[in-house]
Nucleic acid binder design. Structure first.
Length: 798
DNA sequence: CATTCCCGCCACCGG
DNA sequence: CCGGTGGCGGGAATG
């Protein structure tokens, strides 16, 4: 059973004497020497970082052991047969294997050094069965870290695409209302299985309404899509898709923690209502573990445990970079997918399609239908590809070849999409959409125009659309990372939570895997133990948390959650601000720019809302983009803000814009300078589709306010978590959102309501429940949320 | 016993 | 038809 006992011989003898004690004669010292493998600076770094955590460390060690053993010697064998042999299962763990695998390639391969992966080589060098490599590669593929070229051959992209990918995934995740689904599941779970009936109605309704999203297909991305349609032909993507969905869950949920159980349930038949198929569930979990292992190796997530009333359940916490909703490439993903909910919007959809399809470079929002989205994406991708051509592996730039495969597949999928699931209505809508897409002559051709292999373009010059994606263009390819440093991922999300309307405060907690129910004011504390905090980044969190503890315990867990997160958020923001101010001094000036951001989100939220609102008939919005304030605001705002504030790019850009409203606005309509500037920015960033314009008025009006708010926050230098501060933040967000509401046909009253909610202090005592009310009287979402009882939740890290 | 997840059979698929 | 892929689930390690 020994792993490999090839040439151990002489060495072995020597070694055996001191099995492990220390390396006397042998090279195998546990030190970090990965012999055969090419160590790149990055990989080393990786190792170091990972070393911080005990868990990983142990793994690392093992890895080394295995490596060494692999090399030439295996200590065990003769002398220590007694046990020392570590064919222990862990040695063969997928995670470890993945580490080895990753070690072979640089995280960020330079354009020049594009590496190819030959499965045969890998399997041989790593001494593993091919099957295992597939597992790894598949999930890497799902992240677009590699892509398949041909049999046995893959290209290594490293993490360059990660930001884009994550962003896209987040988008899609939002699209699918995963949040709500999660909510539902938890709720259901919470009510044990007792009284099976009763509220079934609500649930069912909601589930149907929201979860209809038919099977989503693989989310493709940037210049990396799948090789010919062949390889990626329909099937064969399960693991990949699963992986993506899994990631989506993290990106979407507020505390970025997802329990296996929930994940499995959602990933299973997202559509099929609960069928407690034991075996199926089990299998799913198994797969999830596989995926999780790989993701862990990538350090995108880490294992934790959420302790709920019923013991602790395995879960994973996102530790990857926070997704920045905008800037660079956000563009297509964000925009394209956005929009309307699948179901609800019957009326507008058609118009949209035709209308939007073209306007901006194709990245308009369309319905969420995957197929559609996919289509758009693919188009976009093509374009991008071309653009990025210079840098990227030249391989296939030929449009024809690319286009062909893409479309067919897309189309093919359409039928499948139209599921009989919901009421006919949805179907109708879908069909309509489909028709739109298919029929519209232009749609098809679309891809063509961009064809010209234009090399990278100057950032400022072109309208948002292109700036995006291609790494080449991007100023900071690694931007994702850098951002991460500033803000902890979780924080970003946290902020989101506050956002008015949409989710209620309680949600944050609710989202967390485990929730303890305790309506009374039992103290719930959320313990997040970071087994090891490596990286300074996250650290800030800790101290805060500590401070918090002393606080009143009467608070509900949710509240606590909120607070804490808020605090963190706040903290960061403030810090950020300062930094900015120092450097720029005029931070205030741009701050307003903050509003841009929300737009996108609005959209997102909208669709979600829409579906919910169906009955209400709220979906009337002309432009999907601007939906009800309530809905969309939440999600991205925070992050957006962050980005804006944080990102050097954005900041830099702002001043310029304001001063010289660039002509960029392709919009023929004349607008006042400020608005145009805004639009420009939005578009540039990719938040706003090129065709769409934001009305100047609203923005202007609000600007002052927001700036003010900002000041406030600034002035209060202390980091304490003050509600006031928090509220301020929210205020910003709210304003933004608010302002965004364009001329859209919304009721006058809405604004007010919104406002109110905004001003409300999130952390407030009644916040949780009150929110549900929701400004516009649409409370659909709230129901689910409200429902959730508060429970004690503990997150333990491994 | 529960959680984790390795192993590898075997159906598919694309060439 | 062949060999690469990769669902899938038993059941072994581990906790």
């Amino acid at each position: 059973k020994t792993p490999l006992k090839q040439a151990a011989t002489s060495q072995v003898v020597l070694t055996e004497r001191q099995p492990d004690c220390q390396p006397l004669t042998t090279p195998p010292k546990p030190k970090e020497t990965s012999p055969a493998e090419p160590w790149t600076p990055t990989s080393n770094l990786k190792m170091l970082i990972s070393a911080a955590s005990p868990e990983i460390r142990s793994r690392e060690q093992k890895k080394q052991l295995s490596n060494s053993s692999t090399e030439v010697l295996q200590e065990h064998l003769l002398g220590d047969e007694y046990e020392k042999s570590q064919p222990s299962r862990k040695e063969k763990s997928l995670g470890l294997l993945c580490h080895k695998f990753l070690a072979r390639y640089p995280d960020y391969p330079s354009a020049a050094q594009k590496s190819y992966i030959c499965l045969d080589e890998v399997t041989e060098e790593l001494h593993v069965e091919r099957r295992r490599i597939y597992d790894i590669v598949n999930v890497l593929e799902s992240l677009h870290m590699v892509s398949r070229l041909a049999r046995n051959r893959y290209v290594w992209h490293g993490r360059h695409n990660l930001p884009q990918t994550l962003q896209a995934l987040k988008k899609v995740g939002e699209e699918n209302k995963y949040i709500q689904q999660i909510q539902m599941i938890k709720k259901r779970e919470y009510e044990h299985e007792f009284d099976p009936d009763g509220e079934r109605n609500e649930e069912t309704a909601s589930s149907l309404g929201s979860s209809e999203q038919s099977e989503m297909s693989f989310v493709e991305l940037p210049g990396v899509e799948f090789r010919a349609a062949s390889v990626n032909g329909r099937k064969y993507k399960s693991l990949r898709v699963m992986s993506q969905k899994f990631v989506m869950l993290f990106l979407v949920s507020t505390p970025q923690i997802v329990s296996l159980e929930v994940a499995a349930k959602i990933l299973i038949g997202e559509d099929q209502l609960e069928d407690l198929d034991k075996s199926k569930f089990k299998t799913k979990i198994r797969r999830l573990y596989d995926i999780a292992n790989v993701l862990s190796s990538l350090k995108l997530i880490k294992k934790v445990h959420v302790t709920e009333e019923r013991g602790r359940k395995p879960a994973f916490k996102w530790t990857g970079p926070e997704v920045l909703p905008n800037i660079q490439d956000t563009k297509l993903e964000a925009t394209s997918i956005t929009c309307s909910p699948p179901v609800s919007e019957s009326v507008p959809s058609k118009e949209h399609c035709s209308k939007n399809l073209f306007p901006s470079k194709g990245k308009q929002n369309f319905t969420r239908h995957l197929s559609l989205i996919k289509l758009v994406k693919s188009i976009e991708n093509d374009r991008r590809k071309i653009q990025s051509a210079p840098t990227s592996p030249v391989k296939m730039s030929t449009s024809t070849y690319q286009n062909l495969p893409v479309f067919p597949s897309t189309i093919t999928q359409l039928p499948a999409i139209a599921k009989p699931q919901l009421e006919g209505q949805s179907k109708t809508a879908e069909e309509m959409q489909m028709k739109c897409v298919l029929s519209s002559p232009e749609a098809v051709p679309k891809p063509e125009p961009p064809q010209q292999p234009t090399p990278s373009q100057p950032l400022g010059v072109c309208p948002a659309s292109h700036s995006s994606v291609s790494p080449v263009i991007l100023p900071h390819p690694h931007s994702g990372m850098s951002y991460a440093i500033y803000l902890h991922p979780s924080q970003a999300h946290t902020v989101t939570t506050y956002s008015p309307g949409f989710m209620l405060q309680p949600l944050p907690c609710a989202n967390v895997t485990g929730i303890k129910s305790n309506n009374s004011k039992v103290l719930n504390k959320i313990t997040t133990e970071e087994g090891d905090n490596q990286i300074a980044t996250a650290e800030s969190t800790k101290p805060l948390a500590a401070e918090e503890r002393p606080e009143i315990k009467s608070e509900t867990s949710s509240q606590r959650c909120l607070k804490r997160s808020q605090a963190l958020q706040e903290n960061n923001l403030i810090k950020r601000h300062r930094g900015d101010e120092e450097s720029l001094g005029t931070s205030l000036t741009f701050f307003p720019s903050g509003y841009l951001i929300p737009l996108t989100h609005c959209t997102h939220g909208t669709k979600a809302d829409c579906s919910n609102k169906e009955k209400a008939g709220m979906c009337s919005l002309q432009h999907p983009t601007y939906s009800s304030p309530i809905t969309g605001v939440i999600p991205m705002t925070a992050s957006e803000l962050k980005n804006i504030m944080l990102s050097p790019n954005s900041i830099a850009a702002a001043p310029v814009l304001s001063n010289s409203c660039l002509n960029s606005n392709n919009a023929s309509s004349a607008q006042n300078p400020s608005s145009s500037a805004l639009n420009f920015m939005l578009q540039h960033i990719g938040l706003l589709p090129a065709g769409v314009q934001v009305p100047a008025n609203p923005v202007l009006q609000h600007v002052p306010v927001s700036s003010q708010a900002e000041n406030t926050s600034h002035s209060s230098g202390n980091m304490n978590v003050q509600e006031g501060k928090v509220s301020t933040n929210i205020l910003h967000l709210g304003l933004v959102t608010f302002s965004l509401q364009p001329s859209a046909p919304k009721e006058p009253q809405e604004p007010q309501a919104v406002t109110e909610s905004f001003f409300r202090t999130p952390g407030g005592p009644n916040s949780g429940s009150s929110l549900s009310t929701n400004s516009d009287g649409t409370e659909r979402i709230s129901q689910g949320t409200l429902y959730i009882p508060q429970r004690k939740l503990e997150v333990l890290e491994d």
